[in-house]
Structures are given as C-alpha cells and as structure tokens.
Simulated scan of single mutants.
Amino acid sequence: MVFELDSKKLEFPHPSYAEEDGLLAIGGDLSADRLLLAYSNGIFPWFSDDTPILWYAPNPRFVLYPSKIKVSKSMAACIRKNTFSISVDRDFDAVIKSCSAINRKDQQGTWITKDMIKAYTTLYTMGYAHAVEVWQGELLVGGLYGVLINGVFCGESMFSRVPNASKAALIYLAQEIELRLIDCQFHTPHLESMGGEYLSFSDYLAILTNPRYEQPL
C-alpha cells in the first residue's frame, strides 16, 4: 500500500507497509527535518523531475559490512601505487553535482534533481551528509556521497571519470571510517562484486536504531 504524505505533517507510515519494490509513500517535501526522520527509520527518497517525491524502504535491504568489503588484486595494486589521493568533505558540492551530471548506462536523465542537490547540501551543512572525493592531482575524478545516521552510511550515489575511482572511494569509506554498515539501498552487480549482501529490514532497522553508537565523523 502506497501512502500519500501531507506536507504539513512530519510523519511516515511504518516501513513494513512498503510495496514489494520498496515504494512506501508519495509526496511530502525535502525539508531537513523530514529527510532526517526518513533516514532514521530506514526510508529514503528516490524520484525524478517528472514524478512527485517517492519514498522507499526496500525489504530486504542491500548492504555492505565494512569488514567484508572485497578488494580485487588489481584494485589492491591500484591502491598500493597511490594512483589516487582521497579526501572526506573537501568538496561536497562538486561530488553531488558530478553524480548528477555523469552519464550512466541504460539511464536517461538523473534522479538527483536541483531540489535534491539543495536538500542534501543543507544536510551537509548540518553535519549529516558527507562526501568522499577521489583526486588525481587537483582533478576530481570520482567520489560518492550519502547520509550518516548512527554509524550507518546511507550511500546515495557515486561517480567515476576514470577507471576504479568510485571503487577507491567505496574502499576508503569501508576501511578508513569506523562505520557499522554501509546501506547500498538497492542491489547492483557492481556492489555485489564488492561484498554487498541482503539484510532483512528488521535486522537493518535494529542496527540503524541502536542508541549506543558514537558518530565517526
């Protein structure tokens, strides 16, 4: 059952009501308070310019445990050679705009709309959204961004302008930042090859809502 949200009421239906594809609700707004309420309950927005705001809570959830990330021999060699330099929150604006602009196979347009960029930039200024940047010299060649809630990094998007740049960002996120879980949201073969796996929503929510955890960033 898909619920229609009232933009004047800051509330969501319980995620257990989500459809088989994860769709839970429609409408509402992208205010910081609503986004934080959503992420704190395992819900996230995913829509495009020609649709209303759509809210998802997939069950099972596709996640990556940082300790289980798979690093291929070629990727390990790339890291050893210091092919890239990597930073955190050096240029959030450039990362989210690059994720929005990058051409993706079998995808027309982008779901990272101007309103989404504005909303997540607000979360960044509040300390909830973060970016990992991958550089070659002074050139930004890859990266990712997401929302950090209680030790769970909810990945929103990543991009690469050169081979292996987004992989380097994900490996850095998993190995260099003390996270309990990386929420990949939906399955992709790429994320599965790096160690992604399914987790029941109830188990995911139990990790997400554990009150005894200190933010790493």
Rank of each mutant, 00 (worst) to 15 (best):
S40C: 08
A94W: 00
L35C: 04
K81M: 10
M75C: 10
I86D: 02
S74M: 12
F62Y: 13
I69D: 02
F47P: 05
W55C: 13
N82R: 14
F44C: 11
L54V: 11
G42K: 09
L36E: 06
D91Y: 01
G42A: 12
L36K: 15
S74W: 00
P60Y: 02
K70T: 04
L37C: 09
V63T: 10
D93L: 14
A38K: 08
S87F: 00
P60G: 05
I86T: 06
P52H: 05
P60Q: 11
N59G: 06
K70V: 11
P66F: 03
I79H: 01
L35S: 03
R90V: 10
K97H: 09
A38F: 00
L64Y: 00
I96N: 05
N82T: 02
D49N: 14
R80K: 15
F84L: 15
K70W: 00
F44L: 13
R80T: 07
F84Q: 12
I79C: 04
N41E: 09
I43H: 03
S48C: 11
Y56N: 08
K68Y: 01
S40K: 15
S74D: 08
F62G: 11
W46Q: 10
L35W: 00
D91E: 11
M75F: 05
K97S: 13
D91G: 01
A94V: 03
I86E: 04
S40L: 06
D50C: 09
P52C: 10
C78R: 13
D49H: 09
N41Q: 12
P66Y: 02
I53T: 07
N82Y: 00
A76G: 10
D49L: 15
I96R: 05
G42L: 09
D91L: 07
G42W: 03
D50E: 15
S40E: 13
I53Y: 02
W55D: 09
K97Q: 14
K70I: 14
L54P: 03
A38S: 08
L35T: 01
A38R: 10
D50P: 02
Y65M: 15
L37Q: 08
L36I: 13
D49Y: 06
M75Q: 13
D89Q: 04
L35V: 02
T83M: 09
S72P: 04
S85C: 10
A76M: 10
C78S: 13
N41K: 12
I53F: 03
